[in-house]
């Protein structure tokens, strides 16, 4: 790593991942949960790219390229689900979405 060393990037990714996990597990709003998951995905991207370029390897960047495409697909389908759920239940607060529970 040119300046700050791999561990810095790793810790940054780690902190962001934990923040994302915290948000995904504690928030009740569907959209915010989704945002937190995107945050976790991004932290993993950061670790992948920094680790790969530390090792003089290209695989990390290629992998992240594919992750971008997957994130786009996931966001489109996930948000479509939220719209569909909102049409039926008038809310996306996940505490109210209990129709699969008995």
């Amino acid at each position: 790593m040119s300046v700050v060393g791999f561990s810095h990037y790793f810790f940054l990714g780690l902190i962001l991942f934990s923040i994302g996990a915290l948000g995904a597990l504690t928030r009740r709003n569907g959209i915010t949960i989704f945002l937190s998951i995107e945050l976790m995905l991004n932290s993993v991207n950061l670790i992948l790219v920094s680790y790969a370029s530390t090792n003089g390897n290209l695989a990390g960047q290629i992998l992240v390229f594919f992750m971008f495409a997957i994130a786009a697909a996931e966001a489109a389908v996930g948000l479509a689900f939220f719209i569909a759920i909102y049409k039926h239940r008038r809310t996306i607060n996940i505490d109210r979405l209990t129709f699969l529970r008995w």
């Binding site: 040119s2 790219v49 920094s50 390229f65 971008f68 994130a71």
Partner: peptide, 17 residues
């Protein structure tokens, strides 16, 4: 990403995300 010499990923990050 720019500081770890991954400009393509940086550009795609802004463009896509």
């Amino acid at each position: 990403y720019l500081t770890i010499k991954a400009p393509l990923i940086a550009a795609l990050q802004i463009l896509l995300y």
